[in-house]
């Protein structure tokens, strides 16, 4: 069979292809994580989170409210 004679060459080609796909995947994941990190950093630095409201909320109903 052809595979007997061409086997080693085919195996090397397949390994090279898989390695290429793997590196592409790793590169893309790294790029996505970097971009997400940059966007998060942008929001963290430029965002207007500030201090949560300190005055609003539930207030006990006291005497003056019940007159």
């Amino acid at each position: 069979m052809a595979t007997t004679r061409d086997g080693p060459r085919n195996v090397a080609a397949v390994a090279e292809l898989a390695s290429g796909i793997m590196f592409t995947l790793i590169r893309r994941v790294a790029a996505a994580l970097s971009m997400a990190g940059m966007v998060a950093a942008l929001f963290r630095i430029r965002g207007r989170g500030g201090v949560p409201p300190q005055t609003d909320g539930w207030r006990e109903v006291a005497g003056p409210d019940l007159r």
Binding site: P53, T55, D56, G57, W58, R59, V61, A62, D65, L66
Partner: peptide, 24 residues
């Protein structure tokens, strides 16, 4: 309602009101 709410609050029933709804 105050004739009932006043003694309730005086006897420890805790009533509250929400303030700042518009600003939130």
């Amino acid at each position: 309602p105050l004739t009932i709410l006043q003694p309730l609050v005086a006897n420890g029933i805790q009533a509250v009101t929400f303030v700042g709804a518009a600003s939130s």
